[in-house]
Nucleic acid binder design. Structure first.
Lengths: 107, 107
DNA sequence: TCCATATTTCGAATATTATGGAATTAATGG
DNA sequence: CCATTAATTCCATAATATTCGAAATATGGA
């Protein structure tokens, strides 16, 4: 992952509303969720939600698919994995990052 | 790790200058680095560097120690590990994040 | 075609973040 | 106590991000 992409992804997740949106989509899994559902769940005005969805989309962290009148958003696990890989590499270079609890991969 | 701390840490790393500063400190390891060295290496004005160091410090991602006339900054691997743990947990909930290459822990 | 629903885009106000020169604080040695 | 080096804080400016009502766009059904 390029530095630009990393910064975009981190910026996207570094906001309470967007982190909640992303977490909601992670929990939603393959079914994804529509803006309507997300707006209801997180009590966000439609325009505000749309702004944040665009940010996450732009960062490649989520995907979008139209289904009739609805749009379905889904978390992009590959992109999130790539971000984690970058951070893991940069955490562990130069010095052992030997904290078993924090870095035990549960996947 | 609390949501607030996660957002602070992500915000701190979501900036080209700060990501570079942090990576430099990770590579520097236990010896750490002084603002002078960092400023020279990354070609940043002192005031700008100081601003970014404060952000990283505030996010708990780096530590500070005075040694004579110099300040020594060091990466805080535990905090970075905690951030990674949070993200890993939130990436892997709900759906398998089964991309061996991206999530193989090298630590 | 017309209406209702779902969602986005526009736009303008507000808030937050970033930059860097100049002034300030901290530490050491002569 | 003064000069020097190291680094921060102050401050004004510039740039970017956030919010959300209102208007626009898209879709499907009557």
């Amino acid at each position: 992952m390029e530095e630009d992409a990393v910064i975009k992804a981190m910026s996207a997740l570094a906001h309470a509303n967007r982190l909640r949106i992303f977490r909601l989509l992670v929990v939603a899994g393959g079914a994804g969720a529509t803006p309507g559902t997300i707006a209801d769940t997180l009590a966000l005005p439609a325009a505000t939600l749309s702004f944040h969805l665009k940010e996450l989309l732009n960062a490649g962290l989520i995907g979008q698919q139209r289904q009739g009148r609805n749009l379905i958003y889904r978390a992009d696990y590959a992109q999130m994995g790539a971000l984690l890989a970058y951070l893991t590499d940069n955490c562990c270079q130069g010095e052992a990052c030997d904290q078993p609890a924090t870095l035990a991969c549960q996947c």
